[in-house]
Amino acid sequence: MDHLIEQVLTKIRQREHQSFEVDYLDQTLPPDDKVFTDSANVSINDVTIDLLIELYRVNTTNSWIHWILQGISFQVNFTFNISQYMVNFIPKKMLLDWPVKFVVDKERPVVMFNKKTVSRGDMAGLPDKAVLVVTDAQSLTSEATEISRLKQITIQIRTDEDCIWQK
């Protein structure tokens, strides 16, 4: 019995460090669910606006959405690789609450804070070259603005809290 437990623990530890990368193609089927038992980190390249909308609406008739939701239930860390022009199409709730990470150009994480004022400490905690989404209702302290310049953080201002397609 101890040997079996050790095998399971070894598999779990290996899974934590395994990554899987897939290109999203609307007309193809997603990979097999076995990916989730082998890899704890999944990156999806070429994520489209349509895929984001379908995911936000939890349209389980879409095979990719069903696959992603299955991965979330397996506690997979998803990274959605998007273009910089898609940032305004990501709903605020997805940026703040969904267990997925958005990355521009495979290197610049997209982040948002759920607070009225973004401070120096908030900015210091962000990776260099991140993309920070803020709304008109939010403000940055002068120190936060300085840190954003030093860390080359792009500040993407939204005129309201909703993304473009939610109107």
Rank of each mutant, 00 (worst) to 15 (best):
H3T: 15
L4C: 10
L4P: 01
V8P: 04
R13H: 09
R13N: 12
Q14C: 09
R15C: 01
H17G: 11
F20S: 02
V22Y: 15
V22G: 08
D23K: 05
D26W: 08
K34W: 12
V35K: 03
S39F: 05
S39C: 15
A40G: 07
N41K: 14
S43K: 10
S43W: 09
I44P: 05
L51F: 06
E54Y: 10
W64Q: 08
H66N: 10
H66W: 06
Q70P: 00
G71C: 03
F74P: 10
F78S: 01
F78K: 05
T79M: 11
F80L: 06
Q84E: 15
Y85A: 12
N88A: 13
I90F: 01
I90A: 04
W98K: 00
V100H: 05
V103Y: 00
V103I: 03
V104W: 07
V111L: 14
N114P: 04
N114W: 01
T117L: 02
A124I: 13
K129N: 13
L132V: 10
L132K: 05
V134E: 00
T135C: 08
Q138I: 02
T141E: 05
S142H: 09
S142E: 14
E143K: 14
A144R: 05
T145K: 15
T145A: 13
Q152D: 13
I153S: 11
I153P: 02
T154A: 12
I155R: 02
Q156D: 14
T159W: 12
T159F: 08
D160H: 13
C163A: 05
K167W: 06
